[in-house]
Design a protein around this nucleic acid. Structure first.
Lengths: 133, 133
DNA sequence: CAGGATCCTAGTCGATACTG
DNA sequence: CAGTATCGACTAGGATCCTG
């Protein structure tokens, strides 16, 4: 059973290494469905909580809050509370957050120019699989 | 209860719209932890199954196979079976797969230049939260 | 060697209800 | 208005065993 232990050890070390890898940290946040949506919702300027949720009808308010908190924690957006009645909370991209937009655009750009090839490949693949199951 | 139904309807429509959005399709695959690792493992040239798994010790063979199949289906890698005894299977990036590497590099690049700011922001945020819980 | 088939758990997400 | 708290459904991913 030493081999199994050894493999598990390797796996742990590797995963530890990965969680320290900047690229994967970024991907972890960037890949979040709601993160990308919130980011692009705020791209045009600051929004109140309610307006963000209207811009992204698919998000439950739990996910929305969770996402906004995460982004705030990472320094990508600022949260400004105006203690009126009722309270008003505005969210705005920081400079750091804005610097992420070009990266998003790069991804979107690749997607738009290559997605058809991917779809075609899938069709071909699925068809081939249907012939030889 | 009509309001709830309406919201659910909106959510469904929105999610349907999202799943058709090229950007999110790409992000769905690109953000997969194992996808990025396999992609960069194959960046330097074709590899056999065993070698991929050695390059990425953290991946269970289930995840590895699953990921490779997904990439093959999307036309990002080719799978070549050599029917010797024992069999030999090579995986190689397609042109489409290689065209994805610059995007990965862009992400990695942003991560490396900005990750410290993110870490700093987190530290500050967590510290502020500790003061006012 | 390269995987297929299963079982199982830990975390994710949505819906709902309540608060300052 | 802008959340917080809680619960249950769901599922991705890991461990394990087995095959051509």
């Amino acid at each position: 059973m030493r081999a199994a232990e050894r493999r598990e050890q390797d796996r742990r070390e590797y995963n530890a290494f990965l969680s320290e890898c900047p690229g994967h940290e970024l991907l972890a946040t960037l890949s979040d469905k709601w993160v990308t949506l919130v980011l692009s919702a705020l791209a045009d300027g600051p929004l109140r909580y309610r307006d963000v949720s209207r811009t992204i009808p698919g998000a439950s308010q739990k996910m929305l809050t969770q996402t906004l908190r995460k982004l705030e924690r990472d320094g990508l957006v600022t949260r400004t509370v105006t203690p009126s009645v009722p309270v008003r909370v505005d969210y705005e991209l920081t400079a750091l957050g804005q610097s992420l937009l070009p990266v998003q655009r790069a991804i979107k750009s690749w997607a738009e120019t290559h997605i058809e090839q991917v779809h075609l490949a899938r069709k071909t693949y699925d068809h081939a699989m249907a012939d030889a199951p």
